[in-house]
Design a protein around this nucleic acid. Structure first.
Length: 802
RNA sequence: GCCGGUGUGGCGGAACUGGCAGACGCCCGGGACUUAAAAUCCCGUGAGGUAACACUCGUACCGGUUCGAUCCCGGUCACCGGCACCA
């Protein structure tokens, strides 16, 4: 029999859509299950072969849960604002809206061809004004609550995109998107105060089921450290506040360093004897990009501030103050005490500038290298701390500083506030108006969405302003508060905005009164299972957790965490084991694969290709094995014996496989689930199969290869679609064998395999084992010192020569 | 440097968290069917060794614990991912 996969697959995709079997139901009293995949950015390149891997995985989970009676929400949408679309639009002179429309249509057709069980009636698009109305609304709420603020600060400026980037978007000093150089620039930006949520973002990780490596990466990114702030008196008559994690080494502080951007450079201007030199150093540093500043890190630079010294509060010593760009303004207080004996950077700096190095923790040789071990050292040369461990020393020093009003404990985070402005066209307009009299005033809620105006050109203006700045009709408005002439904010939001809350919209996507109704949110959220790429761990995943916590705080979201469970998939690599890319010429196009093998085969292969969580190279011959598997099932269908008798062997295999496939799906072990079904096919092929057995088989295969299994089910007169059929139950007692094989070892070396009844008495098992020919040969002339029987598994005779 | 992970046949990968290493698939070899090829089906396939058995070795490397280690412990090496002048 020949199968026209293309027609057959289209037919079932149509049937599913017409029947609405995959529609999630609001207001149901069934138990819900919310499965979520990261909605794609509809790029011009079309769907990548990597997309279907996570999509199919959660599709399998969703299909199975539906068959198990859950009310399943498995939605899809488009994360469609963003630079690539805008750049393409500029280059080809097409409106970004049109580009988006085209790309979405293409993506949609491609996704539908895979047979994913999305509820297409809930499709969302971040560029739809009915959607971004609520993105703007959330921003305004944050503004109201003081979490959105404007700040002039050094920002990452991509020289090619002509756009500000968040720290997260700068990778190794270059733009994550285009790879161009990123420099620092002073700009006035909208910021979101994610740092206010740092501790909660850490703490609540304990309440969710994320892969350990995801939690570890988030913790790392947030970068909490516990230390102390200490005030140093200065000869300028003021106090210089520093942050340190090693207060125990205070006696070893022999100089201070402040960042070039530190405000004291200006504050002390009149006292600094070499101000010109200091100012020049500051200017030189400001010209360096972050990349240069860190890459050239090995060689420390700096300038001593002549005319101001600091007093070490531990011992009253007067110590010099330097400016150096190895101290960053953005972390701690922008100033440090330098303890060259016990900090590598300080040690290098001290060496270069000939500064004293004092050992205050014994255990190393500070003339050779900084001794940074906190576990083993004992404090020395430290007055009242002498003899203490590092930990004891910290506590004692903090107590004393507190008593003297010179310092206190302090927790710091590496996490910075989120730079939220983009000088670009294709993003959500920031709904604020600047009035000379009233300052920043929100656009009234009833005027949302604040739509993107039509403009002629999307290019950034030469001075780095958003293209919206040229749109004077739109920019010039009146103040919502006082009615005076005012100007709109012309920056737009970053791509991360729309994706920070999209999953909430799915619960009630057409609501025009709220981002979603409280009932829908209460029923559907949190997301039960969210799968996505590791590359989003510190960006999207953290941002959306932050937004969700805020929505929780203002009573919109019912839970403080958005996602109960987060898993991650590995990339699909090219056949040569390298990352797929046009330049490497190893790109596989999903359209071609579907045309050649069918969607079921592609689904199956992407699940069989390897460990779901790890990267795996594509293999053209590997996928043929999966197609062969389906062909063999079609062949087996021809040989189904109506009314074939009950077969104990088949029954056992069935129950075992149903159990294994069910469990493997829940554990992301799709590869072994498929292997188990391949084994089952081998068994049924040999033993013959009756209709009931065959039906159970295609039912558990249905989530993996939904089209073919529906077709076969229909051919066998199945009354309803497999998609609407119950997931088969298994009988635990029928998954266990009543006769088991045991390996028999002599001194740990395998000598033979015996069969015995399950849970057979140890004595009897030993008897059978001794009777085995090879075993008895191995035991001949030996004295058995010990006999070990592990139930249903193994027998081991420990022997020595007689 | 810090954090996380990985290392198993020619290849992708299995192995109930201490119990027959290599499931399942790919590739490859042999055979059947065919005028022939493709497709399909059957057999074989970790390495050494043997006429065939036997036997020996084998989960990156070295050592340890154990009746028994891919799994646990100590050390070494290699690779991948994240962070990184964060005091």
């Amino acid at each position: 029999m020949r199968h026209d996969f293309a027609d057959m697959e289209k037919k079932w995709q149509r049937r599913w859509e017409e029947s609405g079997v995959f529609h999630a139901e609001n207001g149901s009293d069934k138990e819900k299950f919310f499965a979520l995949i990261e909605f794609p950015y509809p790029s011009g390149a079309g769907l990548h072969i990597g997309h279907p891997r996570p999509y199919t995985a959660l599709d399998i989970v969703a299909r199975k849960r539906r068959m198990q009676g859950y009310n399943v929400l498995f939605p899809i949408g488009w994360d469609a604002f963003g630079l690539p679309t805008e750049n393409y639009a500029i280059k080809n002179n097409i409106h970004p809206r049109e580009v988006t429309k085209t790309n979405v249509a293409r993506f949609k057709a491609q996704l539908q061809a895979i047979g994913l069980s999305f509820d297409w009636s809930r499709e969302v698009n971040t560029t739809d004004p009915d959607y971004y109305k609520w993105t703007q609304w959330i921003f305004l709420k944050m503004f109201e609550h003081g979490l959105a603020y404007k700040s002039t600060m050094p920002v990452n400026w991509c020289t090619s995109c002509k756009c500000v980037l968040a720290n997260e978007e700068v990778v190794n000093g270059v733009c994550e998107r285009c790879g161009s150089e990123v420099v620092r620039r002073e700009k006035s930006q909208w910021m979101l105060k994610i740092t206010a949520y740092a501790q909660r973002l850490i703490d609540d990780l304990d309440t969710v089921d994320f892969l350990p490596r995801i939690k570890a990466q988030q913790l790392n990114w947030i970068g909490r450290s516990t230390g102390a702030e200490v005030d140093f008196d200065t000869t300028a008559g003021d106090k210089l506040k520093i942050y340190t994690t090693r207060v125990d080494t205070l006696f070893g502080a022999t100089y201070m360093v402040i960042s070039p951007e530190h405000p004291y450079v200006e504050k002390w201007k009149d006292r600094i004897e070499n101000y010109a030199e200091v100012a020049d150093y500051r200017y030189q540093s400001s010209k360096k990009s972050d990349f240069e500043r860190t890459e050239l890190a090995k060689d420390k630079t700096g300038v001593r501030i002549a005319g101001v010294n600091a007093i070490n509060p531990a011992n009253g010593a007067e110590i010099p103050v330097f400016v150096s760009d190895y101290v960053l303004m953005g972390y701690g207080t922008g100033a440090i005490m330098a303890v060259p004996g016990h900090d590598e950077r300080d040690w290098e700096f001290a060496r270069k500038f000939g500064l004293p190095i004092i050992e205050v923790v014994a255990g190393g040789d500070v003339t050779q290298a900084a001794f940074t071990d906190c576990e083993t050292g004992t404090l020395v040369n430290s007055g009242f701390l002498d003899g203490m461990s590092v930990e004891e020393g910290k506590a004692a020093m903090i107590a004393r500083l507190k008593a003297e009003g010179q310092g206190h404990e302090k927790v710091n985070y590496k996490l910075r506030d989120w730079v939220f402005s983009r000088q670009r066209y294709w993003g959500e307009p920031i709904p604020l108006v600047y009035c000379e009299k009233c300052g920043w005033v929100p656009v009234p809620e009833n005027e949302l969405p604040l739509r993107l105006p039509e403009v002629e050109k999307y290019e950034v203006t030469d001075n780095g302003e958003s293209p919206l700045a040229n749109c004077t009709d739109w920019v010039n408005t009146t103040c919502p508060r006082c009615g005076a002439a005012a100007k709109r904010e012309t920056d737009t939001m970053p791509q991360w905005a729309g994706s920070s809350w999209y999953f909430l919209r799915y619960t009630d996507p057409h609501n025009d009164k709220a981002l979603a109704s409280p009932e829908a949110l209460r029923y559907w959220t949190p997301v039960d299972w969210y799968n996505g790429g590791m590359e989003h761990t510190t960006l999207h995943l953290l941002y959306s957790r932050f937004w969700h916590k805020f929505l929780y705080d203002i009573g919109v979201a019912p839970t403080s965490e958005p996602y109960m469970k987060r898993t991650s998939h590995g990339m699909i690599l090219g056949e040569n084991g390298e990352k797929m890319s046009k330049s490497r010429g190893n790109v596989i196009n999903p359209d071609d694969i579907i045309a050649r093998y069918g969607a079921d085969t592609m689904r199956l292969y992407e699940m069989f290709i390897g460990d779901f969580e790890k990267a795996a190279p594509w293999s053209d011959s590997g996928i043929r094995g999966c197609r062969r598997f389906l062909d063999r099932i079609i062949a087996l269908a021809e040989r189904v014996q109506e009314g074939k008798e009950y077969s104990a062997a088949n029954e056992k295999a069935m129950h075992k496989t149903i159990k294994k496939v069910g469990e493997d799906i829940e554990n992301l072990k799709f590869n072994t689930a498929i292997a188990a079904m391949m084994s089952l096919l081998n068994q049924l092929d040999e033993q013959g199969v009756n209709r009931a057995e065959f039906t159970d088989f295609i039912t558990i295969l249905n989530p993996f290869a939904p089209h073919l299994t529906e077709e076969l089910n229909e051919r066998f007169g199945g009354e309803r679609m497999l998609a609407a059929t119950a997931w088969p139950a298994y009988d635990e007692s029928k998954t266990v064998d009543d006769v088991v094989e045991l390996a028999v070892q002599v001194n740990g070396k395998l000598k033979g395999v015996i069969t015995a009844a399950k849970d057979e008495e140890d004595e009897r098992v030993l008897e059978i084992a001794r009777a085995d020919e090879k075993v008895s040969a191995a035991l001949a002339g030996m004295q058995v010192v010990k006999s070990i029987v592990i139930k249903n598994k193994i027998v081991n005779f420990v022997v020595k020569p007689m």
